[in-house]
């Protein structure tokens, strides 16, 4: 196989690996821009993956799976909202709690309902899984040099959720920067007092933001369990929620950079999976280093050595309305 084909294959798996990150990072974007830190992305994604796979297996429909994934993930997002908005609890603590509740509940319920060691039944029935969509002419143009392969391998042949993820990026940008809701959402993350003074409910605005987070995490989980894989495996998110969080910070809380950050982290993962170790002449770079590179890069960025990542000003602080 030539260099070019290898590159296309790596890029193809980059896209597949980046999609859950993209959904989850965009999810975090809504919440964090409204001033609610969310380290519970991982848990919501995991719970959504389980709910999606379980519902898709029981009802035999991928779309019903997606629906339940979104419901469960949004319910957890509302728990986070209840703790951190209504009861002004510590947002980090609440996020940690949600991660654990999701990690434990998915295994216990999975075992109790399906008795397959924490797995859900494999989604083999027609329509119970989001399958690859072949775009028009994908086969016909395959033999066209360079562009043919790019079109047929890289652009075509993904599931609907992949295209939705890419569509969610400009959509999020439009919502945040071109709608009244977006303006208020960003304002409430910077200066909730000013929003309150303008007569807009800080509480309701933030609740809507965490609901957006829940919905997008639902997509992320459904993609993992109902599109990328054919069923739920215990702990299948395996830290993706935290990589998404890293990507969100890496992208400085902006939608389009979020996409690129996720693609970069997906690429690093794809390379680490493809090559056991990379020989750069002097010594061999171990795959573990490639896998930890997203985290290292995020720390370096946070340290302010590549630009400065400034979080929303009111992030993490509960809003106390003056009486």
């Amino acid at each position: 196989m030539g260099m070019f084909e290898t590159l296309i294959l790596i890029l193809d798996s980059t896209v597949r690996l980046a999609i859950p990150l993209m959904f989850a990072a965009l999810a975090g974007l809504y919440s964090e821009r409204s001033g609610i830190f969310d380290i519970g992305l991982e848990g919501k994604m995991l719970a959504a993956a389980f709910a999606g796979a379980a519902a898709a297996a029981v009802y035999g429909s991928a779309w019903i799976g997606l629906f339940f994934a979104i419901i469960v993930s949004t319910a957890l997002a509302l728990v986070h909202g209840f703790a951190s908005i209504t009861h002004r609890g510590n947002q980090i603590v609440s996020g940690v709690a949600i991660n654990f509740i999701a990690a434990g509940t998915t295994i216990i319920l999975g075992q109790a309902w399906f008795r397959q060691g924490g797995r859900t039944p494999a989604l083999s029935a027609e329509g119970s899984r989001f399958t690859a969509i072949d775009l028009p002419f994908a086969e016909a143009v395959r033999d066209v040099p360079v562009l043919g392969l790019v079109y047929s391998e890289l652009i075509s042949g993904h599931s609907i959720l992949v295209y939705l993820a890419f569509a969610a990026v400009p959509f999020t940008w439009w919502v945040l920067f071109r709608t009244r809701f977006g303006l208020r959402l960003r304002a409430v993350g910077e200066n909730p007092g000013a929003v309150d003074t303008a007569g807009i409910s800080v509480t309701w605005l933030r609740y809507r933001a965490v609901m957006c987070t829940g919905i997008l995490c639902g997509f992320a989980g459904a993609y993992l369990a109902v599109a990328q894989n054919a069923g739920f495996v215990k702990d299948m998110t395996a830290g993706k929620g935290f990589i998404a969080l890293a990507a969100l910070i890496f992208a400085k809380w902006k939608p389009v950079p979020v996409m690129f950050a996720c693609l970069l982290f997906g690429f690093l993962d794809a390379v680490a999976i493809r090559f056991a170790g990379i020989d750069i002449g002097l010594f061999e770079v171990p795959p573990q280093f490639m896998q930890s590179l997203p985290y290292i890069l995020t720390v370096v960025l946070l340290a302010g050595f590549i630009g400065k990542a400034i979080p929303p000003k009111a992030g993490g602080q509960p809003y106390v309305k003056e009486r």
């Binding site: 728990v79 209840f82 703790a83 951190s84 009861h87 609890g89 510590n90 947002q91 603590v93 609440s94 940690v96 709690a97 949600i98 991660n99 654990f100 509740i101 999701a102 990690a103 434990g104």
Partner: peptide, 10 residues
Amino acid sequence: GLVILFAGAL
């Protein structure tokens, strides 16, 4: 998780 939620966040 529940202890963290109820004794911590809530």
